[in-house]
Design a protein around this nucleic acid. Structure first.
Lengths: 240, 240
DNA sequence: ATCGAGGCTTGATCTACATCATTCCCGCAG
DNA sequence: CTGCGGGAATGATGTAGATCAAGCCTCGAT
């Protein structure tokens, strides 16, 4: 069941492309029309920043299309991509006054902006909205925990397999006609910084997956998963 | 301001030792007395499990004293401590039906148990409870993000410094008479599995911190921070 | 068509941390 | 006090992945 189906015809988010998980589903048309047009929509070209480490965090954003990365930078320049955010994800759920990390569009991106204070008041008034927001945060927490396991204990090959599996789950094409396609809008450097590796290692692991016939790169930004079974085993740390 | 000060004299959680952050503060005495005695209290000796990977996740727990660890185990035995939970923290905030990780008492521990379904209904009825729960999840998410940076990009020395800083913030003694003491109820192996290292490396880094006069171990389970400044610099990745 | 720049891949070497192997320490039972 | 057992520390060696250094596509500008 798509989100579209859940909304009345005159629902102002009817044309919003994000999934059922979207917070807007938690509100009826009247409440929503009051709620939504407070922050407006934001469009970013690939590479454009949404905010920087240290900026005032008075807004929450919902990604409606494109991909955003959350970036941490250590004083000496080491970089860690904390998370990639896909359509349906929220940016800025943390409750700090200032952003701990910077956010940047990976590909051309559209977002909905919500003022935090207003969000709070609506959450108090509409339990369904509060519940949806909580569910989002809990699910972000669950994937952060998975990522901790990956960074703490998995090998380079396992990390890349986990990554491809995750991205496929989030924005990959379904198994129509047997082809599992994974778009990779981010650079190898971004993937490396996400996996806690270097771009050289990521590159090498890509070619290992290719020569093992587990993936077939259609281009730099699109890979086909040839052997989902072995891919999953690698991702979970089962393979030899 | 302590939590105690916020609660009426007849508040049933008046004697609960956890901080202001506790969810109970979000409820008045009547609502709370209805709410609390549904799950009861749990006492665990050091080493006892609270639940296992795969168990039905129908409860949420609040740590009131002691320390709990969340454990991930890969098929071949590699282990990752996803997080340590200190008094005031919640266990099982994730929304999955089954636990992704196992939970085990590190030291003798007391917890409050809440039934998830009941929790949900109360959250819908009391916005303040929902908000407090959300704040908890958001703060867990923020520290998970910090941990991702640590595991992805910090050196062994930096990881240990980060860890000691964090533990001090959570359960260390204040700077009375200049002595910053950090209790370490968990084993070196647990610390290693938390930091994505081996116990040998953790041990070596402890002695390096000692020989650099940054810490002075009072015993295996209690260290004094001699140079908080350099400690913090190390933790943030500033040191050479 | 040609050039150039930036990102990707591949190769050679280096190193931080893992692994394997003792030894040490300390609490505890006798 | 003495001997024992398990965690912690230390030492010797191995290795996954980092770093350094070329080449090599790809695509857009000329």
């Amino acid at each position: 069941m798509t989100k579209r189906a859940l909304l009345q015809d005159d629902h102002p988010c009817r044309d919003c492309s994000v999934s059922t998980e979207s917070l807007c589903c938690a509100l009826d048309a009247d409440a929503l029309s009051d709620f939504r047009n407070q922050g407006g929509t934001i469009c970013l070209a690939a590479g454009e920043p949404l905010f920087h480490q240290g900026d005032l965090a008075d807004c929450v954003f919902s990604v409606t299309s494109g991909v955003v990365k959350l970036n941490a930078i250590l004083p000496d320049g080491r970089r860690q991509v904390v998370t990639f955010l896909f359509p349906g994800d929220f940016v800025g759920l943390e409750m700090n006054d200032r952003h701990e990390f910077s956010a940047e569009a990976v590909s051309d991106t559209r977002l909905c902006r919500f003022l935090k204070g207003r969000f709070e008041r609506f959450a108090d008034r509409y339990p369904a909205l509060a519940a949806a927001r909580y569910r989002r945060a809990a699910s972000e927490l669950a994937s952060a925990h998975q990522k901790i396991v990956m960074l703490g204990r998995k090998t380079a090959a396992e990390r890349l397999a986990s990554f491809l599996t995750d991205v496929h789950r989030r924005i990959g094409t379904a198994e129509v006609s047997g082809a599992k396609l994974v778009p990779l809008p981010m650079s190898r450097g971004d993937i490396a910084d996400y996996l806690g590796l270097t771009k050289e290692t990521v590159s090498r692991e890509f070619t290992r997956l290719r020569t093992s016939r587990i993936i077939r790169p259609r281009s730099v930004t699109l890979v086909e998963i040839l052997d989902p079974q072995r891919m999953r085993e690698l991702a979970f740390g089962i393979a030899a």
